[in-house]
Amino acid sequence: MLSRVFGFGRRPFESLSEQEILALAISSEEDDGRIYRAYADGLTENFPQSAKVFEEMAEEEDGHRDALIELFRKRFGERIPLIRREHVKGYYERKPDWLVRPLGIEHVRSHAEAMERQAYLFYVEAAKRTADASTRKLLDDLAVAELGHETLAQRLEQKHVPGA
């Protein structure tokens, strides 16, 4: 327990191989998609249009995950190592939605913005540590996409919640 609190037993990000960086990115995109779906579920009753925004954002994360898995298969094969945020020292954390209930719309929006910013920073750092051209291109593309998610969220909000 104390090792988790103080970060003992965690690997420094700098020590990760390209295979491990891709595995971490895959698990991170999966987690983010789950979080957005949980937000959508929590908002459906009181904010059904905003819930649709988070459903679409989850689908976007699924697309990122799929692209990462495809690249991983091409480079490293079918077995993706289990590596998660909590295994990496200094890596950003995500709190599950059940720890931050009740889900207020403003809280969810600000948390989503922070998630996208953290993901952007991860992809920028990951791309710097990658020598393979196709991997670097995908990580750079994902960094740009994460940065653009705030714009996506605003567009989706305008589409689903007119006058918001």
Rank of each mutant, 00 (worst) to 15 (best):
R11K: 13
S110M: 11
V161A: 14
H87C: 06
E30W: 03
A153C: 06
H111P: 03
G7F: 08
H87T: 01
L138Q: 05
R4T: 12
E106C: 05
E125R: 15
A131N: 15
A153M: 15
V108I: 09
A164D: 15
R4H: 13
Y123L: 08
V88N: 07
F6S: 08
R101K: 05
A40N: 07
A114Q: 15
D41F: 00
H111T: 14
F72I: 04
F13I: 03
K89G: 02
E150D: 11
I83G: 01
Y92L: 02
R101L: 14
R4G: 12
G90R: 03
Q158H: 12
R34S: 06
A143K: 07
S28G: 09
R79T: 12
R4P: 08
E116I: 09
R155H: 10
H87K: 06
A25Q: 00
P12I: 04
E56K: 13
W98M: 06
L156K: 00
D62E: 11
D32T: 12
L103P: 03
A119Q: 03
E59T: 01
Q49K: 14
N46D: 15
D140M: 06
F54A: 03
L22Y: 04
A145M: 09
V108R: 08
L142E: 01
L152R: 13
V124W: 05
F72W: 06
H111E: 14
P12H: 12
F122R: 02
Y39E: 08
L71F: 01
D32N: 11
G90V: 04
T151W: 09
F6Y: 11
V161Q: 10
S15Q: 13
E30K: 09
R101P: 02
E70H: 12
R84M: 01
L24M: 04
D140H: 10
F6W: 14
Q154Y: 10
K74Y: 00
E59R: 06
P102A: 09
I21W: 00
G9A: 08
R34N: 11
R155C: 00
L16F: 07
A131M: 11
D140C: 07
K128F: 04
L152M: 15
R109F: 08
F47C: 09
M1A: 12
V124Y: 00
V124A: 04
R79C: 03
E93N: 13
M57N: 00
Y120P: 04
E56W: 05
V53W: 03
A164Y: 15
F76I: 03
A143S: 13
Q158W: 09
F8A: 12
A67G: 02
E14C: 06
E93F: 14
Y120N: 11
L156M: 01
G163M: 11
L152K: 11
V144M: 08
L103K: 10
E20F: 02
A133F: 05
L142N: 07
E45K: 09
E55F: 01
I21H: 03
V100L: 15
L121A: 14
L156H: 10
M1Y: 10
I69R: 10
A164P: 05
F122L: 05
F72Q: 00
H149S: 05
